[in-house]
Design a protein around this nucleic acid. Structure first.
Length: 871
RNA sequence: GGGGAAGUGGUGUAAUGGCAGCCACGCUAGUCUUAGGAACUAGUGCCGCAAGGCGUGGGGGUUCAAGUCCCCCCUUCCCCA
């Protein structure tokens, strides 16, 4: 092997990628095949939508991490499933196809091919035999089959419902897809519409989805987001009688313990009773207010700090616990869609009620003693109940709330209830590019599921598929698709023309990877029993409450149906951090502000277009760290980076630059360090390739090592342990630092060696270095492994095991402190006990001088570390 | 407003309650008879000639010992309202 100035990654990286591909190196053994007797490991990336915007260096961070884990697990003797596929159905793909005036089917195929090529450039070790595409009929056949499974279990149903309508994407959205009142895809303000829609009854699993979170090895942040999204709250429903009427007003409250403090009620303007109870004198004001509220979005209605508005209806209700009359108001801060659309207002202990009471001069009665009078703001803390009749003196809070709900039940005034914020999952989309919902509407038999044998209901090939804008699905305009026969009576019937939102496809794809070619079932029980659950799942945190919740839900449904034997699909989850780019921009101009459509927020910063960048005054350019994305024109691609520095350098750098889950400010300044490190590995190895013998160093290693060689050997075994540990806990950055330290020491030992001499300790280090670095820099490792005279791929060779006896230091630096400040350092035997290190410390001339004969008040020895002398 | 994460050199970062700053970037000086976006050597938290002192967003506390644990406050990011 020639020692070159620049290590020739451009030659050997593509060569090894070719070898791996040609020999199906990373094919996972199915149950029953040779290799399946090994323990299994399933490392999964969230499957991407292959966008035409292509990849940037932020995308591969997670893929590199799972790849490193996969490669290491193979070396540790696991049968590793590491698959990849395409989340090809859904709005993102369809919108892009419309914009580019392409057929989505062909577009996705083309983009997926590009992605695949980019994966290969980074050296990712996927088992491409298992590639899946959610828009392939062989895949969505089973998505439809699973829809029918949910339908038969009563977990899929159709009803007329007010839904989130995106006027730009021309379809409805699930609650989870509405972000701050806007469409998650195009950022348009969503509208409310009444339409018949399909739902999955995820609410039936709310408690299980909540409880099972506890056992998962997931980031706490994601689990808490799911808990908040599910939003379980215990409270009570209380009935208030409307004075002079039969009607009862039912309210929900999480604070039944403050019932005595309810001094008025507030109804949502849309509440059905509003019209009936409004008094003659108030009617005009009420009608005007109701009309006005219709034009304000939910977001604005709930906005914090907004001046409260409202109108008295002229009616009174009766507080059931003390029979006081309470006026009934309407106000837009109460929403019809939440709870019962009516609240009891307790101004003393709820801030919004407090503001309302102040504004309209309503009575405020304090019922929880917070130590001070409620004057400037509501008191929401705990305390003893006051002004609460029979409950005076007992503590308020959760326990009291429970007791009072029970008491309300006994009195027939209400009952304890558990509510969830979680709503049923809206799955209908009035779009073309999705799996058709396999239901037929028959005039005689109503909704009829399509027979299994008739699946898949194929998406027809059409020239035009743009959404109509009327809310009617594009499929409805295709008679050949719509008109069909009823599976029950054979009479004329119409197919359902809504398609499923993309999250249906991604709710089970991790199961299909276990058995991707099965054409008689979505997957065999045997395959999922062997491969699932996923041992390591990695992706972006943006899927916290959508995909991850839906996939958990489907898994539980499948468990109940006996199709899988586990209740949680992803044992361990890790999220990579965001990738930011330093991006030139400018203040918005007046033209920009004029361009903004009404209701759009005005950004305080605009990215500079390339043509602007050249001419814009330098001193007015404002640089910011913002998310890397095509639309901000700040993308750095993995291909260009790999071409410049090598795929291995890119991999090592992305792992080294920051802790895995941290946000990264991308810059090329550091990557040269990673490339340099790999080059140092290459050159060091090249120096000792001639005459290297794996047997040779093992025979000699026990004899005649110099002190530096012994130190190197210690470092070798310490590093093996460190890297192994760090990989287990996803601390890639510190593991790379440990490898660098070790290589630096190897150079020291090597440079001190007489020319032409070799050292068995160095040979040992080199061999283990190549193995340890293999998951991070697989091309370089295979190249060096071969250069050392070995056959085959490195991943078939075992991961090194650290020898604890060798790793153990026999000497330590003993720190001697006086009053906690370091005053002396000395070497001491590593196993010296407390008594001997105290003796050593006190014997130090420097310490004796500083003590000046004074008797220490206290001496604290910490064996193996330090002695602290207190004077 | 609620929930979560975080704040350490010029920069990215590292530190089972036990020497703050490992590793890397950058920078400074030097070596290699040309050149340098190469390689190597040495140095590099701040103040100070030095001895030494000071230092982990701010303020308290616990401890022989606090970046780390507790309380209060400030700032940034993410999620939910």
């Amino acid at each position: 092997m020639q020692v070159r100035k620049q290590f020739p990654f451009a030659i050997f990286e593509p060569a090894w990628q070719r070898h791996w591909l040609e020999q199906s190196t990373f094919r996972a053994a199915n149950p029953g095949e040779p290799g399946s007797e090994k323990p299994k490991y399933y490392a999964l990336d969230m499957f991407p939508y292959p966008s035409g915007a292509g990849l940037h260096v932020g995308h591969p961070e997670g893929w590199i991490a799972t790849d490193i884990i996969s490669r290491q697990k193979r070396m540790k003797g696991f049968n590793v499933l590491h698959p990849m596929g395409w989340d090809a159905f859904g709005q993102p793909a369809e919108n892009e196809a419309i914009k580019r005036k392409l057929n989505p089917r062909e577009m996705v195929r083309e983009f997926a091919a590009t992605y695949k090529q980019q994966f290969d450039i980074v050296g990712l070790s996927y088992d491409w035999d298992r590639e899946i595409n959610s828009s392939d009929p062989n895949y969505y056949k089973w998505t439809q089959w699973l829809f029918l499974l949910l339908y038969q279990k009563g977990l899929a149903y159709r009803r007329n419902a007010p839904v989130n309508w995106c006027p730009v994407d021309k379809t409805v959205l699930a609650n989870e897809e509405v972000v701050n009142g806007r469409c998650w895809r195009c950022d348009t303000v969503v509208q409310k519409r009444q339409m018949p829609q399909w739902f999955f009854k995820i609410t039936a699993y709310a408690d299980r989805l909540l409880n099972d979170l506890d056992g998962l090895n997931w980031p706490e942040g994601i689990r808490s987001m799911q808990r908040n999204w599910i939003g379980r709250s215990e409270g009570a429903e209380v009935d208030f009688v409307v004075e002079g009427r039969e009607d009862k007003l039912r309210i929900f409250t999480t604070r039944p313990d403050t019932l005595w403090g309810a001094t008025f009620m507030v109804l949502a303007p849309e509440h059905p009773l509003v019209k009936e109870i409004a008094s003659e004198s108030q009617r005009a004001a009420v009608d005007a207010y109701v009309l006005r509220a219709q034009h304000i979005s939910d977001i604005d209605r709930l906005a914090e700090g907004k001046e409260k508005t409202g109108v008295w209806t002229g009616a009174y209700a009766v507080n059931p616990v003390n029979n006081s009359p309470v006026p009934i108001w309407i106000a837009d801060y109460v929403l019809m869609g939440y709870g019962t659309g009516a609240i009891m207002a307790v101004p003393a202990h709820d801030q919004r009620d407090f503001e309302f009471a102040k504004k309209f001069d309503l009575p405020i009665v304090q019922v929880i003693d917070g130590g001070v009078a409620v004057e400037m703001e509501a008191y929401t803390g705990d305390g003893a109940l006051i002004n609460s009749g029979p409950l005076n003196g007992s503590p308020g809070g959760k326990e009291a709330a429970k007791k009072i709900s029970q008491w309300l039940l006994e009195q027939g005034m209400g009952q304890p209830v558990v509510t969830f914020k979680l709503r049923d999952w809206l799955i209908s989309r009035q779009r073309y590019w999705g799996a058709p919902i396999p239901i037929i509407h028959c005039p005689e038999h109503g909704e009829v599921p399509v027979h299994d044998a008739d699946l898949p209901v194929k998406l027809p090939d059409v020239a035009h598929y743009e959404p109509s804008g009327t809310g009617e699905a594009p499929l409805a305009t295709i008679p050949e698709f719509v008109n069909t026969a009823c599976p029950v009576c054979g009479g004329p019937a119409r197919r359902e023309t809504d398609t499923m939102g993309g999250f249906a496809c991604s709710s089970w794809y991790f199961l299909r990877f276990a058995d991707p070619h099965n054409d008689s079932a979505p997957f065999s029980r045997e395959s999922v029993d062997y491969w699932l659950p996923v041992d390591m799942y990695v992706g972006g945190a943006e899927h916290a409450v959508m995909h991850l919740l839906y996939a958990r839900f489907w898994t539980k449904v499948l468990y109940d149906a006996g199709l899988v034997g586990f209740v949680e699909p992803f044992s361990t989850l890790r999220n990579q951090g965001m990738m930011l780019a330093y991006t030139p921009g400018r203040k918005p101009s007046h033209e920009d502000e004029a361009e903004e459509t009404d209701g759009e927020p005005i950004e305080d910063w605009k990215v500079l277009r390339p043509e602007e960048l050249a001419t814009y005054p330098k001193d007015q350019i404002i640089y910011r760290w913002v998310k890397m994305s095509k639309s901000l024109r700040n993308v750095v691609t993995p291909d260009e980076t790999a071409e410049k520095y090598g795929a291995d350098a890119l991999r090592v750098y992305e792992m080294f630059v920051a802790p895995f889950e941290e946000t990264v400010q991308w810059s090329e300044d550091g990557i040269r360090g990673s490339a340099k490190f790999l080059q140092r590995v290459y050159r060091l190895t090249a120096q000792y390739v001639d005459g290297f013998s794996r047997i040779g160093w093992r025979e000699k290693i026990e004899r005649g090592l110099s002190d530096p060689e012994k130190a190197l050997r210690r470092k070798t075994h310490q590093t093996i342990a460190k890297v192994t540990d760090d990989l287990e806990s996803f601390r890639f950055n510190t593991s790379v630092a440990a490898l660098m330290e070790w290589v630096n020491l190897m150079y020291e030992v090597s440079n001190a060696l007489p020319k032409g001499r070799r050292s068995s300790a160095l040979d040992e280090a080199i061999e283990y270095l190549i193995r340890l670095i293999a998951p991070y820099a697989p091309h370089l490792a295979d190249e060096l492994w071969e250069a050392l005279g070995n056959d085959g791929f490195l991943y078939r060779n075992p991961w090194p095991i650290s020898d604890a006896n060798i790793a153990k230091a026999d000497e330590i630096t003993l720190i001697v402190q006086i009053n906690g400040k370091v005053r002396d350092k000395m070497t001491a035997p590593a196993d010296a006990d407390n008594a001997s290190i105290v003796a050593l410390a006190l014997a130090s001339p420097r310490i004796r001088e500083l003590l000046g004969g004074a008797e220490p008040k206290k001496v604290i020895p910490v064996a193996g570390k330090l002695v602290n002398i207190v004077i």
